[in-house]
Design a protein around this nucleic acid. Structure first.
Lengths: 219, 219
DNA sequence: CTAGTTTTTGACTATGAGTCGTAAACCTAC
DNA sequence: GTAGGTTTACGACTCATAGTCAAAAACTAG
């Protein structure tokens, strides 16, 4: 038997959160699990994960999907031998997709009791995201279509788990031609203040930014 | 049906080469394929790839194995719907494992006609290796147990596909505490010259060297 | 001893990135 | 309208990593 699973991540309330649903049956009754399900014969892995994800969330609101890894340990499910291919999905800040009653967003930093090896898979997804944010334009999948630097900074802080200077963020992403100003401005929060410039990501497809310059000669 | 495949890479004759075997039967009769085979029920993916690899090469001579990705496209095998999980294996410079008569090393830059989607999988393996060489100590799996800088440079040039300065290589890897001098020296090639210092990798387990310093504050 | 070869070392430079202070642009209250 | 508070943007400075180059060191062969 082969299953597909998805770690769907979104920045909500300033924290990186993952979409989980609560099991109603044994094993792991009451524990929280990743969305997913069995692969059908003739089906592609990506088709499968999109089909299963559709029962939990509108797939059109998932801005990026990529394969994470395939798990096969005997310890992962006490009742059966089963392979599972995990995917990573990203949802933009600000969207609030409808989800079924048994489904909820949970901060990755405070995971509830999870079913099978799903807790470890969530953490693997977060690590993948952190790497991609640093050497690709993956931020486009987590940020709204247009955003101020303060908003983008919030996304990076939540996903990376450490402080990020807005000055640096802008310089680095503009130098790498990942983001560009739209020319618009947007008034800041309630307390007044200088209006912020509005930016957008240049590409909305995943692009590797700097393919490891280390050791490459300059000419 | 689920299969496991391995992209086994080694630097031979100054080039990055991959272990392939020639198919005797249709489909793709005469084309070159990656070692691997079907997964058995109850078996782990890693157990499976090690079992199949053992028929082509002494697995103890493969110094590092990691999962690459799982392929499922309908186009990958014209005759059947089959999933395949690909692994990356690395063999140290200088070893010359025994291989069966139908099996041979091929430079990755000059692949012969390959079966199924195996050509693309080989290239994916090379890309994974190139990334890992830049941000981990993956070189330990490709270099001999002890080596001079000239030897290590040869490994990096072959694997990365571009020139690498020995001066830089030493400084970067020593700064990151990836390699260390053993204290020994080794006379250089036939033409005399200053004897080279002998180095070794500090760890022979995969370690991420610099987890993407970008945007992390310094204090 | 001299010439040739290879490796090692250090100085210099380029570049990317972190820090900090100040200026700019807006709001609200008086 | 002006003063004070708030937020964003910008520029100067510093630091760390890494690429380039040339000279010194350590050997072999003749």
């Amino acid at each position: 038997m082969h299953a597909t699973l998805a770690v769907v991540l979104q920045v909500r309330d300033g924290a990186l959160q993952v979409l989980l649903w609560q099991r109603a049956r044994e094993p792991y009754r009451g524990a929280w699990a990743l969305p997913g399900g069995l692969l059908q014969p003739g089906e592609t892995l990506e088709e499968s994960i999109r089909r299963h994800l559709a029962t939990k969330v509108d797939v059109r609101e998932v801005s990026h999907i990529e394969q994470l890894a395939t798990y096969s340990g005997r310890s992962r499910d006490p009742t059966a031998w089963e392979l599972a291919t995990a995917y990573l999905g990203l949802v933009e800040l600000g969207l609030d997709p409808d989800v079924p009653a048994d489904t909820r967003w949970h901060p990755v930093d405070e995971l509830p009791a999870t079913a099978f090896d799903h807790g470890a898979i969530v953490l693997a997804g977060r690590e993948r995201l952190r790497g991609k944010l640093s050497y690709s334009n993956a931020g486009f999948a987590l940020a709204p279509p247009t955003f101020t630097l303060a908003e983008l900074r919030e996304v990076y802080v939540a996903a990376l788990g450490h402080e990020v200077s807005a000055t640096n963020l802008r310089r680095v992403l503009e130098r790498r031609a990942v983001i560009e100003p739209t020319g618009e401005r947007r008034p800041s929060g309630r307390a007044g203040g200088r209006p912020a410039e509005v930016f957008r990501f240049r590409d909305r497809q995943l692009e590797i930014t700097d393919p490891f310059a280390a050791l490459r000669p300059r000419r």
